[in-house]
């Protein structure tokens, strides 16, 4: 088995990443979450816009983690990780997205939602 006799510390998987990248990853994620927190606390957007904005911030945070933490790219050492991730991301979206769509429609057709104050002020993704 190759690699067995070479220096493990020379492996590209060890060589990748770097202090600056990781610190940048930390700062960018915390900053994006901080921005989302501020938006949340100010409560001055419509529900839909709000979900879009924090969703966008989350997507950016995940992207920065993919690049800065996991070090994904299309180099020979990383290509299979990147490909497999790209193939799997649609499954995340399908699983949650279609499920929400399905139950949203089902609830509308089969359930009488309680008309309480909480229900009125608490829109969720299912409503």
């Amino acid at each position: 088995m190759a690699g067995s006799h070479s220096d493990p510390l020379a492996h590209p998987e060890v060589r990748m990443g770097g202090a600056m990248r990781y610190i940048a990853g930390f700062i960018s994620t915390v900053a994006l979450m901080g921005a989302a927190l501020i938006v949340t606390l100010r409560h001055d957007m419509g529900y839909e816009t709000y979900v879009e904005v924090v969703g966008g911030l989350a997507a950016l945070a995940l992207l920065s983690q993919a690049v800065l933490f996991y070090g994904l790219d299309i180099s020979r050492a990383q290509i299979w990780k990147s490909v497999s991730l790209i193939l799997t991301v649609p499954l995340f979206i399908i699983t949650v997205g279609l499920t929400v769509w399905m139950f949203q429609s089902l609830d509308q057709r089969t359930m009488v939602m309680p008309n309480s104050a909480a229900a009125a002020t608490q829109p969720t993704l299912l409503q």
Binding site: F92, T95, V96, T99, V100, M111, M113
Partner: peptide
């Protein structure tokens, strides 16, 4: 980890369905 990510995805789907006042 991708497999584990789908485990969390399923949990998120369950959370989304159960996150209603009902």
């Amino acid at each position: 980890m991708l497999s584990d990510a789908l485990l969390f995805t399923a949990l998120f789907a369950a959370y989304a369905v159960l996150d209603t006042p009902m």
